[in-house]
Each structure stands twice: as structure tokens, then as C-alpha cells.
Lab assay of single mutants.
Amino acid sequence: TEKQERAIEYIRRLGYSEEEARRILKKANGNPDLAKEIARRIG
């Protein structure tokens, strides 16, 4: 989804690889607090 793409872009800007960014997002899917934090940061 567009939100996922924005989140991946944001995480990659922090210096993670695409693969790492996707792994972090997968974790965020099972972790509402982390997901909220990422969403808050990407606006």
C-alpha cells in the first residue's frame, strides 16, 4: 500500500536496506506501538 511504501522510504532514509526496512515493517504489523510510532514519524 502507499502507507507501506512511505514507511519503507522513511526507514531506508534512516540507513536501512530495503530488506531490513521490510523486516521492520513486518514486525510493526504485529506491534501496534511500533506501527503507530512509524506512522507518526512519516505523517
Rank of each mutant, 00 (worst) to 15 (best):
S17L: 05
A28I: 03
A35W: 04
L25W: 06
I8N: 02
S17Q: 04
E9H: 08
I38L: 11
Y16F: 15
R12G: 04
R13T: 14
Y10V: 05
Q4G: 08
R22F: 10
E37L: 09
D33F: 07
E37D: 09
I38N: 04
Y10W: 10
S17Y: 02
A39M: 03
E5G: 06
R13F: 13
N29S: 08
N31T: 02
E37G: 05
Q4N: 08
R41F: 09
I11M: 09
S17D: 06
R23N: 13
E9G: 06
Q4D: 07
K27S: 13
N29P: 01
G15E: 01
Q4S: 10
S17H: 04
E18H: 08
Y10A: 07
E5Y: 08
A7L: 06
E37Q: 10
E9S: 10
I11T: 00
G15L: 01
I8E: 03
I38R: 04
L25P: 00
E19H: 11
N31L: 05
N31F: 04
R13K: 14
E19R: 10
E37T: 07
A39H: 02
E37K: 11
G30R: 03
E37I: 09
K27Q: 14
K27R: 13
A21Y: 01
L14M: 11
E9D: 11
R40I: 14
Q4L: 12
E5P: 03
K26R: 13
L25N: 01
R40T: 11
A39S: 03
S17N: 07
D33M: 07
G30N: 09
K36W: 07
A21I: 07
K3R: 13
Y10Q: 06
K26H: 11
E19L: 11
A35P: 01
A7I: 08
K27L: 15
E20H: 09
A39G: 03
Y16Q: 02
R23I: 13
R41W: 10
L34E: 07
L34P: 01
G30K: 03
R40Y: 09
I11R: 00
S17I: 03
A28H: 02
E5V: 10
R41H: 12
T1P: 10
G15W: 01
I38K: 02
A21W: 02
L25Q: 01
R22Y: 13
E18D: 12
L14C: 05
E9A: 12
K36Y: 10
A21N: 00
Q4R: 09
P32G: 07
E18K: 07
Y16M: 07
E20I: 09
K36D: 03
R23W: 15
A35D: 01
G30D: 07
E19N: 10
P32T: 09
Q4P: 06
E2T: 11
Y16H: 06
K27W: 15
I24C: 05
D33S: 09
R13L: 14
R23Y: 14
R13A: 15
L34T: 06
A35Y: 03
E2A: 12
I24L: 08
Q4H: 08
R12A: 05
I38S: 03
E18Q: 08
E9W: 10
E20P: 00
K3N: 13
L14D: 01
R12I: 15
Y16S: 01
R6F: 08
Q4K: 07
R40W: 09
A39R: 02
R23Q: 14
K3M: 14
A39K: 01
T1G: 09
A39V: 05
Y16E: 00
L34R: 09
E20M: 12
G30Y: 12
E2Q: 12
R6W: 09
L14N: 02
A7V: 11
E9Q: 11
K26D: 12
D33Y: 08
G15H: 03
R40Q: 14
I24A: 02
E2N: 11
K36L: 14
A7H: 03
D33L: 07
E20N: 07
A7D: 03
I38F: 05
I11A: 02
R40F: 09
R41K: 14
S17R: 05
R6L: 14
R23A: 14
A7F: 05
A21G: 03
S17E: 05
Q4I: 14
I24Y: 04
R22A: 06
K36S: 05
A39D: 02
A7W: 04
Y16V: 04
K3H: 13
L14R: 04
K36V: 15
P32Y: 06
K26P: 00
R22S: 05
I24D: 00
D33G: 07
I42A: 14
R13W: 13
Y10S: 06
A7S: 05
R13V: 07
R41D: 12
R6Y: 08
D33K: 10
I8P: 01
G30H: 06
K36G: 04
I11W: 02
N29Y: 07
P32W: 06
E5L: 12
R6G: 10
R41N: 14
R12H: 05
L25R: 00
R23V: 12
N29E: 08
E5S: 08
I11H: 00
Y10M: 06
L14T: 02
E18I: 09
K27N: 10
E18T: 08
A28V: 05
R22Q: 08
D33I: 08
T1K: 12
R12K: 14
N29T: 04
G15Y: 01
E2R: 09
K26L: 12
G43Q: 15
E9N: 09
E20Y: 08
N29K: 12
L34A: 07
P32A: 13
E9V: 09
R23S: 13
L14A: 03
I38Y: 07
E18A: 09
L34M: 08
A39I: 05
E20V: 11
Q4W: 08
S17P: 05
R13H: 13
A7Y: 04
K36C: 09
L34D: 05
R12Q: 13
R23F: 13
I8F: 06
A28L: 03
T1F: 11
I8S: 02
R6N: 12
R6Q: 15
I8T: 03
R12F: 04
T1V: 12
S17V: 03
A21C: 02
R40M: 14
